[in-house]
Design a protein around this nucleic acid. Sequence first.
DNA 1: CGGGCCGTTGACACAAATCAATGTCCGTGG
DNA 2: CCACGGACATTGATTTGTGTCAACGGCCCG
Lengths: 254, 254
Amino acid sequence: MLQRNESNLQRFLDRLTSRSVLSAMEQQAILNLPTYAAHARAGEDFVHLGERVTHVCFVVDGLVGRFDQNAHGARQITALHIPGEMPDLHSVVQPTATSALHALSPATILRVPHEAVRAVAAAHPAIAEALWRDCMVDSMILAQWVVNVGCRDAKTRIAHLICEMACRYNAKRLSSRIVFNLPMTQLHLAEATGLTAVHVNRMLGELRSHGVEFRRGTVYISEWDRLVRAGDFDPDYLQADVRPEERIRILQAG
Amino acid sequence: MLQRNESNLQRFLDRLTSRSVLSAMEQQAILNLPTYAAHARAGEDFVHLGERVTHVCFVVDGLVGRFDQNAHGARQITALHIPGEMPDLHSVVQPTATSALHALSPATILRVPHEAVRAVAAAHPAIAEALWRDCMVDSMILAQWVVNVGCRDAKTRIAHLICEMACRYNAKRLSSRIVFNLPMTQLHLAEATGLTAVHVNRMLGELRSHGVEFRRGTVYISEWDRLVRAGDFDPDYLQADVRPEERIRILQAG
DNA sequence: CGGGCCGTTGACACAAATCAATGTCCGTGG
DNA sequence: CCACGGACATTGATTTGTGTCAACGGCCCG
């Protein structure tokens, strides 16, 4: 079912324009991209390892993970993607999937043909620039994940991940209290942090005394500052909150 | 000292054209980029954390690492860059450095002004595409590093890193024997793999019985296949050896 | 009502970190 | 040319964080 569904892609456009400058015409070109709706059940792979992909995926709803694995079948989540993001935008320039895409929760996906994305990128180089920049934000997050699994202990890793997701969901602070939905299991947390599910469980127990609670897909934070300290978290790498005057445009206005 | 040094940037151009399609004019535009030569002593940071950079760095000689650190000062190398690469190409679209760049060995660097890179990218959108693609190769490597530190044991991690660097240096196989220069200390290996230097030392000892030796900045591999198995290594993610007919070009020829 | 996934807890094992001492290489200056 | 110092490598003894194994509990959904 092909549809031109502006209201959905609006969230992706918002994401792009939060860091890049696009003219009205360029913005409209994004919103006019053709999309194919698809649904993924929780636990379903919807892009497979090694596949030559022909569409990029846009997450409308649910939580999506990029999964890799080692020779013994141990899985590692290398990225999480929330609604409004494109988990495999990189496939536009690099179509062979080196990771699988997997729905951690029931997810609604829009598929956008590479051809269409390439056409708008070709017609509007500033869009190519914005897409490139969007990919680089994912890349900065990836670098932080290397730091997280490479040189932080278990409790800190989990706290860091929770901080990151709180920021990315743009969870609002009500008198230092934060509550948001994070549809993952403890096993998922383990696969994202390079730990075992058992140890994650123990650490979540300890984190409760630091003012965080994770229960059945919901995070309850009672003291943000304490969590930030426990998670050794510095949000700079997320490149959120770029002020309008700081947004960059390399290419001439269209 | 501004110089137009085609012979140096030729290596970067080769890297780009190994995966992207550029016309003769576009290729010449890359070679004409203005460069400022600089030298970094071993152990020197030449791009600092949080700095707003105005030039991209091109590695002519030596080995460069992207360094991050946690709150306790433990350092993590999140990327290694060999001659012919641009460690902070991403700064063209994202100029605030979220990692430091550090010379692991004496290094010769060419700095290329962002303005100039942006100008060629604007004049030749296919160059922007090639640069985007180059950034994505770094990003795939980063994802593999998450897997490496996230779910492999110490010996495997080190073997994997050695395999990766052997491929990236394009070290040639002479009757299954491979020798190449990797100007790192055991501490650097530790910082790249999320281990301690002491443990790296022990694992290097064990790896000797797997047909690999690392001694004073040189890797001696006597049995490549055995090392590949020991390192759980699959080179697909490096996106090397892209055959000419598989190279992609989104944008119209210039 | 039952079965399965997920979460929880405990006992134990083990890989890797830590601490500490010693050895080796190499550049530098006397 | 040799003595010294410093960075790097090596080795052993010990500790510790995290994994492993196993059992049980609770919740949701069919």
